[in-house]
């Protein structure tokens, strides 16, 4: 009796191994990205060049880093519309500090501090005051960008003091042929994949997204965790902001404009469920990759970049439809 029960369990687990992979949205999105890459390699001479791949990987790293933060927020049942503004705020803060002659490390800490403060404010208003995440982060999107304009007086910054070369090297350089932003992405992704799976914090984020009142009733520190989630999202935006300044070699106040859309799209395409409780680090990264491949392919194929939004929008709706279909089955 026990034996047959156990073997039945083993069997059902065995079967689910294959069907689980097939059922994973990440798998199909990854497949789509790989197919797109293969097609581009065949159709164009320009895709598989070292230079283009370098650009693609670097560009996608910024969105992917932030998509990991966004996926965490979405998994907890929230949303963060202020990430694009956190990018420009962090960028302006590091720019202003370094221009004034401060060392890189101090300026970077200040930039991350500014971003974390944005996240803290979001988190407190959402988790403690109880305001809806959409409204709070929408307000913060406007507030933080305005703050960046005030701080920089809307002037472009391109002189970064004594540590100028460090900043530009960090964002624009490479290590063992890999763009530095990609290395940062890999580090953050590895840490967060571990945190999602193996820490109580990770479990609690998903529990809150799955059923917030259940999380509350079982004594999970829901407020503290929600605050930390928004702070983490802002942190990823701060990191991306610093790297983007180094890559571009200048700070302009339109940096990160409407970037929240690409980031949310990447998270959702990667399987983050806007009603909470689902999402993965791998999904966030692969979602960001697919978006960048689409963007790049339109350019390489000579299709008007005006079509970009249509393609990305199409994919968002496609994956959500796919999800609905799975739910019906």
């Amino acid at each position: 009796m026990t034996n047959s029960l156990e073997s039945a369990i083993a069997q059902s687990q065995h079967r689910s191994a294959l069907s689980r992979i097939m059922g994973l949205q990440v798998f199909w999105v990854f497949l789509a990205a790989v197919l797109a890459c293969a097609a581009l390699t065949l159709l164009t001479d320009t895709f598989a060049t070292e230079r283009n791949l370098f650009n693609v990987t670097r560009n996608f790293a910024f969105v992917a880093i932030m998509a990991i933060g966004m996926t965490t927020v979405i998994a907890s049942g929230g949303i963060d519309l202020s990430v694009g503004s956190s990018v420009v705020l962090a960028a302006v803060v590091i720019g202003v500090f370094m221009e004034a002659g401060h060392p890189f490390w101090l300026s970077a800490l200040a930039a991350l501090g500014a971003a974390l403060l944005v996240g803290l404010t979001n988190g407190l208003l959402i988790a403690v005051v109880g305001m809806p995440p959409f409204v709070v982060t929408l307000g913060m999107m406007s507030f933080a960008r305005s703050l960046a304009l005030v701080l920089s007086n809307n002037k472009m910054i391109y002189e970064f003091g004594p540590d100028h070369a460090i900043l530009l090297g960090l964002g624009g350089g490479r290590l063992f042929g890999i763009p530095n932003p990609v290395i940062v992405l890999v580090l953050i992704a590895a840490v967060m994949a571990f945190v999602y799976r193996w820490t109580r914090w990770g479990q609690h984020v998903f529990a809150i997204g799955g059923n917030e009142s259940a999380a509350l009733m079982t004594g999970i520190p829901v407020r503290a965790i929600k605050v930390s989630v928004y702070m983490f999202s802002a942190f990823t935006a701060g990191v991306a902001g610093i790297l983007m300044v180094g890559w571009l070699g200048s700070v302009t106040t339109n940096l990160g404009t409407s970037m929240e859309l690409a980031v949310i799209a990447a998270a959702v395409i990667g399987g983050a469920n806007l009603s909470g409780g689902e999402g993965s680090v791998a999904g966030a990264v692969i979602g960001a990759l697919l978006i960048e491949v689409i963007r790049n392919s339109l350019i390489l194929l000579g299709i008007s970049t005006f079509w970009q939004g249509a393609f990305i929008g199409f994919f968002i709706i496609l994956v959500v439809a796919f999800d609905r279909l799975k739910a019906l089955r």
């Binding site: 998903f206 529990a207 059923n211 259940a214 999380a215 009733m217 409780g277 689902e278």
Partner: peptide
């Protein structure tokens, strides 16, 4: 406590 709505997380 066993709560009225069971307080379960469907996704876990």
């Amino acid at each position: 406590v066993v709560y009225q709505d069971l307080a379960l997380c469907d996704n876990l």
